[in-house]
Design a protein around this nucleic acid. Sequence first.
DNA 1: TTAGGGTTAG
Length: 683
Amino acid sequence: MYGRCGALDDARKVFDELSERGIGDVVSWNSIVATYVQAGDCRNALRLFDRMTWDSGHVPDAVSLVNVLPACASLGASIQGKQVHAFALRRGLSEDVYVGNAVLDMYAKCGMLDEASKVFKQMEFKDLVSWNAMVTGYSQVGRFDEALSLFEKMEVEKIESNVVTWSAVIAGYAQRGHGHEALDVFRRMCLSGSEPNIVTLVSLLSGCASAGALHQGKETHCYAIKCVLNKLDNDPGDDLMVINALIDMYAKCGSAGVARTMFDLITPEHRNVVTWTVMIGGYAQQGEANGALKLFSEMVNQANFIKPNAFTISCGLMACARLAALRFGTQIHAYILRNQYDSVMVHVENCLIDMYSKSGDIDAGRVVFDHMQHRNTISWTSLMTGYGMHGRGDEALWVFNEMRKAGLVPDGVTFVVVLYACSHAGLVDQGIEYFDAMDRDYGVVPGVEHYACMVDLLGRAGRLGEAMKLIKRMPMQPTPIVWFSLLSASRLHGNVEFGEYAANKLLDIESENDGSYTLLSNIYANARRWKDVARVRSVMKSTGIRKRPGCSWVQGMKGTATFYVGDWTHPQSQQIHEVLTDLILRIKALGYVPQTSFALHDVDDEEKGDLLSEHSEKLALAYGILTTAPGAPIRITKNLRVCGDCHSAMTYISMIINHEIILRDSSRFHHFKKGSCSCKGYW
DNA sequence: TTAGGGTTAG
């Protein structure tokens, strides 16, 4: 009775008393073991089971084994589990379907699927639980194809699935990001007459979230209100789980507003750490990184304190990485160090590497990397990506070699990063070598993303003809990213012919991308083909496509300041413009000539020069100079690619100011120092 | 006495 009520101490007292008086029997041993398992204290459950087997004079029966096996499973204690299995075989208890199922499940949970499958095949009598344990076992170790084929076999053998089977299959699809398939299974489940429950809905919502299927997510929401939520015998924790899954679904499907409304409807004392995390993560992934950081601060400062877990911290760092919010990111790093996050540290540390490198301080990312106790493939590739973004190609390739020495096998993503690093550092020959080697030496077949990297690599280096030849040689259809790489390279090298070709291909495939139109009109402007510029602009106008406004932000003393082109809204605008005018006068004396083609207007050169001088990145720089301590770097982030004229101006300005200018644009980092830029023209 | 569930990184 005490055991069933969760009163572990009381149950133990009664058990010890019975033992002392010598009147304990197998049932009392079984009950106490079960009580420990239920309380989550599997270690003590195992200890008691051992005492029962060796010291008590009683012989474990089928119930004892069924009690102790889940404890082995949840500890991953496969050696003890195997001993229990051997005991069952010796005692002839393995015929019992309960015992068989528990053994099978123990092997599955310890990741020993081949052992589990052997047990499954040898079972003379299988029930639905046996099949379900096998299906979920395969699914959870990532052998989802085998899980599915078992699921299909169940149909063939006319074994009727129950809610557990259906939910497990839905969850399997959802975990792999195959939301549409999850939805299909859900429909089949409803047709089969099986009634979805909370677990089904939570799994399904996770699938909708990963598929971005808002409509089906809403349908699931209706179903939840009608049939599942707020039922009298529901555990309130289960209801919250569904609500959390709904918030996550709405946020990931682009309805952060709806998600926020649901979040606000839950009173703070009812929210748990996942409620906060899904909302923060939703903002961070939907490009509302400012909202994410605001909520993160609110979470750690609220009266009803809930400690952020590794997931929350990762989401916060992701938001910092997007915004290049170095100061906030550093504060989160300090928070981690103060608050002991021992478990699942790898994930958080990987986020730290990413945050530091995307915020302009790749050396700090390297320090995090060097201090890691355990590293996985993502740790190595994150560091490599960082070096690549900063144009430090040699160091990126060094990381690649060290990674191989550490025994890690490069995969498709690794090679994207390697090629990206070569491209951004102008290491053309090495890039070609790696591209040739990836299939030959590593067995990684180049995908469309690797071809895109190669087009980028050759294109940046001005080898446009070779890039075009490579596209023609591709064994698959080029995706927009391939043509976009060719188009960017054509813009960089002022090649109208290739630019037009790539732009036409791109507009055939996806006509909504403002970036393609802007690049093409830049190419025409550079060639002074104003009629073509006007034509592109009129197409944009008639199709309603608008160029995204350029926007830059800089971390000043009083927080982050944001600027748009020609922006006069900042309270210090007057001063900012004075600084800028003065700087431009001074660099003109050093040889700077405004590159008017970037102004995109068919007006006379003097006026174009004026428009250029108000580009957002220049305004951000002037503000940075006003608010940054002498000698400290100025960190600017831009949402689009830096304009060529601004790039040239910043190179000159870095000769006359006592700051390094660290600029992150949508493509990479530029470090301007003493008259040169780290990108060496490769942007 | 056995089976299923939500949030994170390249």
